[in-house]
Amino acid sequence: MPAAGTVPWRVRAGVLEVLLVHRPRYDDWSWPKGKLDPGEDWATAAARESVEETGLEVRLGRPLPEARYVVLTKAGERGDKVVRYWAAAVTGGHGRLENEIDAVAWLDVTEAYARLDYAHDRDQLRSLVRVHTDGALDTWPLVVVRHARAVARSAWTRDDTERPLDARGRERAAALVPVLAAYGVTRVVSSPSVRCLDTVLPYAVSAGIEPRTRGGLSEEGYAANPGKAVSHVDSLLRRAEPVVVCSHGPVMGDLLDVLGSRLALGGPDSVGMLEAFAQAQEDRLLKGEALVCHVAGSGTDARVVAVERHLP
């Protein structure tokens, strides 16, 4: 039984606070969460459920420990429930309670720990406090996307830069829209090749963002000047704005090498992050994959503190 949720957080007067919700049906205090809709991505569900339960829009940050426990199904049978969580920053919303929740409370860490009704909910709180203490809670997403499936080169007789997505590629481009929205992406950068631009264009249109094209991210531009693609990533790290950058398989090696050099290793999450990133590098990302790099800091101080692979 898959579900997803968030731990909304803020810092007020130097004090870390988190948002709890109260469910009158169970008379309990917990995190905003809910079941995945059929075919829904975990991250999309987490952001959606947060809005539906609190009336607040959130931007997903780094993932937190998941929860696993046994529940009774409607048929009275025992079933395993898995809930994935993300730290989340509130970005907007009306705050009206509309769905199964009758109260919310912003509490400091000590108050929240005491009010949570379930021991497994405290795992996320402990993790949140740890990364906050390490200065790695306030992050922004740099999402690297390899263009989705395109019409085969052998079936295309015109300029390769004009080669479009095929039907599956267009489906994947549409599926990326709610994923990128969950991470609050506000900047879209792409190779000017049609197959790249059309992979991120549905999101850009949905979010009202003007996509920016960079010749150095194209296969042709990369072949002429490999260092240009790397300079684009360095520029994005200096800007420190939630961004998606879409490029091609041959370019991915250098893009990921730059980000790999920024991995913040040494913490308890290092092994999992390093393994996921190494596999992404080996694959050069799959076509239509989105690699979410959660970055703390900017410029030369920027460090990738968590990574997630969203596979097609």
Rank of each mutant, 00 (worst) to 15 (best):
M1G: 13
P2G: 12
P2W: 12
V7P: 02
V11N: 06
A13F: 04
E17K: 01
V18P: 03
V18I: 07
L19G: 02
R25L: 15
R25Q: 13
Y26I: 15
D28P: 04
S30V: 08
W31M: 10
P32F: 07
D37G: 10
P38E: 08
D41F: 11
D41A: 13
D41Q: 12
R48N: 02
V51I: 14
R62E: 14
L64Y: 02
P65Q: 05
R68C: 10
R68G: 05
V71P: 06
V71H: 07
V71Q: 10
L72T: 13
L72F: 11
G76L: 09
R78W: 13
V83K: 00
R84L: 15
T91S: 04
G93T: 09
H94P: 07
G95N: 02
G95M: 05
L97Q: 10
E98W: 14
N99D: 07
D102K: 01
D102R: 00
R115H: 06
L116A: 06
L116V: 10
A119V: 10
H120A: 08
D121A: 10
D121Q: 12
D121E: 13
R122D: 01
L125P: 08
S127D: 15
V131N: 02
W140P: 04
W140G: 06
P141M: 12
P141V: 14
V144D: 11
R146P: 12
R153M: 13
R158T: 15
R158W: 14
T161F: 13
L165E: 10
R168W: 09
E171K: 05
E171M: 11
A175E: 13
P178F: 04
P178L: 08
V179I: 12
V179Y: 03
A181F: 01
V185T: 04
R187K: 08
V188H: 00
V189Y: 03
V189Q: 03
P192D: 01
C196I: 05
L197A: 14
V200I: 09
L201F: 09
P202G: 02
Y203W: 00
Y203C: 00
V205I: 15
R214I: 15
L217N: 05
E220H: 09
A223R: 05
A223F: 04
N225Q: 05
G227K: 04
G227V: 13
G227M: 06
S231Y: 01
D234A: 12
R239E: 14
E241Q: 06
V244C: 01
C246M: 03
H248Q: 03
P250L: 01
V251E: 07
M252D: 06
L255N: 08
A264P: 09
G267V: 14
D269W: 14
G272P: 05
E275G: 07
A278L: 14
Q279D: 09
A280S: 08
E282R: 03
G288C: 04
E289M: 11
L291Y: 03
A296S: 14
G299V: 10
T300M: 11
T300C: 10
V304D: 05
A306R: 09
A306H: 12
